[in-house]
């Protein structure tokens, strides 16, 4: 069974997931960060594949992508780093990135390599649901890769159901209509949306992401969904060069307890 399904079967709530950009802060930190996150008790990790023009990301993740690319990160190198990851890390791992680098790598080859590394799912925010359904669903399924699609407060119920049907593993509910890391102001609107989601009887469990930055927001999100994803706040912590890298990771996870 796919590790994502196993996770959600065993743990119905309070799932904590973290996003980081591969190649940041240093080119070869990927494995260290993954191992430390697992030991610290994180349930699922999204590994970002850096892109030069990340449209859905705010300044912090943009900057981490720029640094990662300058450091020399590529999809080829990332797969090289992840080759033996399953000897060290057991939590579900998801690759997240924009479509163009994946297209240039070759989608079929990409799926093959991801599966060979033991990747469980893919998030490609600029791949529309319709394009996935038409061109890539079969391929992803053949490699046992879940495709995790995004929904937003402005996604209609009908479209959420459509996206839910196409998604595997979980649904990624963007907490507000905003790029990553944006501070949320409209708390009431958000609650209406979260409640709406919890009443839709969706096939997939839901993780809430974008704009979740601390313990309080995490707990709030967990009231309405199986868990939440933290990206920007974690990247900020990774940039803090006062401490050794593993300590940065551990302290961050501790701050969520």
């Amino acid at each position: 069974m796919n590790r994502i399904n196993q996770l959600f079967q065993h743990k119905k709530s309070g799932i904590r997931s973290v996003y980081f950009t591969a190649g940041f802060p240093n080119l070869n930190d990927t494995i260290d960060i993954l191992c430390t996150l697992e030991k610290a008790g994180i349930d699922l990790v999204e590994i970002g594949m850096p892109f030069s023009d990340p449209l859905a990301d705010g300044p912090v993740i943009q900057q981490s992508s720029t640094v990662a690319l300058k450091n020399g990160m590529t999809i080829t190198l990332l797969f090289e780093q992840l080759k033996n990851i399953r000897q060290k890390v057991n939590i579900p791992l998801v690759l997240m990135g924009y479509m163009n680098p994946v297209l240039q790598y070759g989608v079929e080859n990409f799926c093959k390599m991801a599966a060979a590394c033991g990747i469980d799912g893919l998030i490609l925010p600029d791949m529309p649901a319709e394009v996935y359904e038409q061109h890539y669903q079969e391929l992803f399924q053949k490699h046992n890769l879940h495709h995790i699609l995004l929904i937003t407060p402005r996604t209609s119920d009908d479209r959420i159901r459509y996206i839910d049907q196409l998604s595997g593993g979980f649904l990624y509910a963007v907490s507000s209509s905003a790029t990553t890391g944006n501070v949320q102001q409209n708390k009431e609107g958000q609650e209406v949306y979260f409640k709406r989601l919890s009443q839709l009887n969706l096939k997939n469990p839901v993780l809430i992401g974008f704009g979740i930055s601390n313990k309080e927001q995490l707990e709030h999100a967990c009231q309405y969904a199986a868990g939440a994803v933290i990206g920007t706040a974690f990247i900020k912590q990774l940039s803090n060069s006062d401490k050794e890298l593993p300590l940065r990771v551990r302290d961050f996870v501790k701050s969520l307890d």
Partner: peptide, 11 residues
């Protein structure tokens, strides 16, 4: 062509 946009812009 097409519209390769994040779901955030779908609406």
């Amino acid at each position: 062509g097409g519209a390769f946009i994040p779901e955030l812009l779908h609406a």
